[in-house]
Design a protein around this nucleic acid. Structure first.
Length: 278
DNA sequence: CAAGACTCCTGACGGC
DNA sequence: TGCCGTCAGGAGTCTT
């Protein structure tokens, strides 16, 4: 499932391939993929446009166009972008024929991915917290942010309006690295531990970007068609029953907020009185 | 404000 | 072999 490192990898690979390219035609094979405007307007407004830049915000891709508009994309679970002339897969949802003969394809097995064409990116983005790799976000920020909320760490870190870009995999990996249990209440985390959590998040995300993301399942591939390699470095995600690489205890899996959650019961001590529910 | 339920989807997988 | 139920999971929406 693409999270910040995977989206960053996609953006970095698409940028040199697409900036300067012009769109000759647009074909929408699964209309629900186009969130806004209408499919008709989406096609009409994109034809003839030239891509002038590609950026990432949280897990969103922002394609800047020469008329000032922005094509905002989200891969959700199984979305993929690729560029080329290869034959279409059966899950191609939106096709952008380029004037140089190549084709930008948005492919998405589960159809959760979305594309929106807007004048201002803010029109297509929900409220988002800061970028975790930003220098504006540090241990002091995390300590204050955790104290100001009363939520379990796992769902809080998944909340994109709190901190933007983490998903299920990197939350589990970051909590393990920081030795914090996912059921800990945010306002009970000490400042020193909050600083460790922030450092862990930055280290995990940075390492994952260096590895071009994680290809835990067969869905995520870079636009060049390669899998990432960070799954080889997972400490807990998908490792239920296997020994912790730090202490040897068996990795456990539980469900927190309807999400599969992986942890080492020895490295990550449970809160004294499991918060459970009220 | 917090959090649970439900929804959108398909492919993989377990059971028989 | 093949049919069927179950699950995973990001994020929006609706309830409690």
């Amino acid at each position: 499932m693409p999270e910040l490192p995977e989206v960053e990898t996609v953006v970095r690979q698409l940028r040199p391939q697409l900036v300067g390219a012009s769109i000759a035609s647009v074909s929408v094979r699964w209309p629900a993929t186009v969130a806004r405007p209408s499919v008709r307007a989406f096609r009409r407004r994109l034809v003839g446009r030239t891509l002038v830049g590609i950026e990432r915000r949280a897990k969103y891709l922002l394609f800047g166009l020469d008329d000032g508009a922005t094509l905002v994309g989200h891969l959700r679970m199984t979305g993929r972008f690729h560029v080329g002339k290869q034959p279409l897969g059966q899950h191609a949802r939106v096709l952008f024929a380029l004037q140089d003969g190549r084709r930008l394809v948005f492919d998405d097995v589960r159809k959760f991915g979305r594309l929106a064409l807007v004048d201002d990116p803010a029109q297509a983005l929900p409220p988002l917290g800061p970028e975790p790799l930003s220098e504006l976000v540090d241990g002091a920020w995390m300590a204050a942010a955790l104290r100001s909320r009363r939520r379990l760490l796992k769902p809080l870190l998944l909340d994109q309006s709190f901190l933007a870009g983490l998903g299920n995999i990197y939350v589990d990996e970051s909590l393990h690295r920081a030795r914090l249990h996912p059921l800990r209440r945010s306002d009970r985390v000490r400042p020193a531990a909050a600083r460790q959590l922030m450092a862990a998040i930055k280290t995990v995300l940075g390492g994952a970007i260096d590895a071009q993301g994680s290809s835990f399942d067969r869905f995520y591939r870079t636009p060049e068609g390669n899998p990432g390699s960070f799954q080889d470095e997972f400490a807990v995600y998908g490792r239920e029953g296997l020994p912790c690489r730090t202490c040897g205890a068996r990795i456990r899996r539980l469900v927190v907020g309807q999400r599969g959650t992986h942890l080492c019961p020895r490295c990550q001590r449970a809160p004294r009185r499991s918060p459970r529910r009220a």
